[in-house]
């Protein structure tokens, strides 16, 4: 309640509370299979919020619904008080709700600088200019270098993304997402498939870029969640099992049962 609301939604003069992203009764079924059932989720502005759950709990589906990759069977998604249920993913990205992907989503045959610059082009307005030289984008280079420096990739600016290590690709992807200057970043398993030596820098990086933004992450690695996230929502069988701080959630007997059987015991 102490967080100041800097941008009021144009369509709604009185944004509800300080929730920047909200799901209401969200459901998605594929054929007869209910991947996500009646999920109510509220993400507080300025927080780092985690969505966890055992494999097959519907985390990624939920995530895809929030980022508009999938259209819900039922329910609504609100961003900044505005109903975005009917919008396309590119449109919500322009509003400031930007996602990353589980598999490393760089542009492998573009240089690191170009990777970030593509995102900067999104709001630059000359992306259809096929007759102009790339020099027309020179004014974006400073900002791109700044973002690369922020994630520790300044020296690699002219390397192709495909030449980077796995951890550095993730960092590049975060720089690309940051280039959109998102109000909300949706990060899909930012440390998936990483060795321990890479997990910590990425966790630090996420914390570093979080001020002034809201971050919702789907994560398997509970130690990352424990030291990063203020609020945690646990999904199971497509439904919300419980929600709370790490301390509350981890001591909840239902959660312990859900995670038993060694699905993910890190």
């Amino acid at each position: 309640m102490s967080v100041a609301i800097t941008t009021a939604a144009p369509t709604n003069p009185a944004p509800e509370g300080d929730y920047v992203l909200e799901a209401r009764g969200l459901s998605k079924s594929f054929g007869g299979f209910h991947a996500v059932r009646n999920v109510d989720l509220k993400v507080k502005r300025g927080s780092i919020h985690a969505l966890i759950g055992p494999n097959g709990a519907g985390k990624t589906t939920c995530f895809n619904l929030l980022s508009k990759i999938l259209t819900p069977t039922e329910g609504q998604v609100l961003f900044d008080g505005q109903d975005i249920t009917g919008l396309r993913s590119a449109q919500v990205a322009r509003l400031g709700l930007v996602r990353s992907f589980q598999i490393s989503a760089t542009f492998p045959h573009l240089t690191c600088l170009e990777n970030v610059r593509v995102a900067l082009q999104s709001s630059y307005g000359i992306a259809y200019s096929f007759w102009r030289s790339l020099r027309a984008l020179d004014s974006l280079n400073d900002r791109a270098m700044q973002l690369l420096a922020q994630v520790g990739l300044k020296a690699q600016a002219d390397l192709l993304a495909t030449e980077l290590s796995y951890g550095k690709k993730r960092a590049l992807e975060i720089a690309t997402t940051l280039a959109m200057d998102p109000k909300v970043m949706l990060l899909d398993e930012p440390t998936a498939g990483m060795g321990r030596e890479d997990v910590e820098p990425i966790t630090d990086l996420i914390r570093e870029v979080s001020p002034g933004r809201t971050i919702l992450i789907v994560e398997h690695n509970l130690s990352v969640v424990a030291n990063l996230c203020e609020r945690i929502t646990v999904l199971q069988h497509g439904e919300i099992l419980t929600e709370g701080t790490y301390g509350e959630v981890s001591s909840n007997p239902d959660v312990i049962t859900a995670y038993m059987g060694g699905v993910d015991d890190e």
């Binding site: 996602r99 760089t106 492998p108 045959h109 573009l110 593509v118 999104s122 992306a127 096929f130 790339l134």
Partner: peptide, 22 residues
């Protein structure tokens, strides 16, 4: 060109370009 840069990005990863608001 600016267009070519986005086009090459689409070649590499269309879903990602979409998620960047294009």
């Amino acid at each position: 060109s600016p267009f070519g840069e986005v086009l090459r990005a689409i070649r590499d990863n269309e879903a990602r370009v979409d998620s960047l608001g294009f």
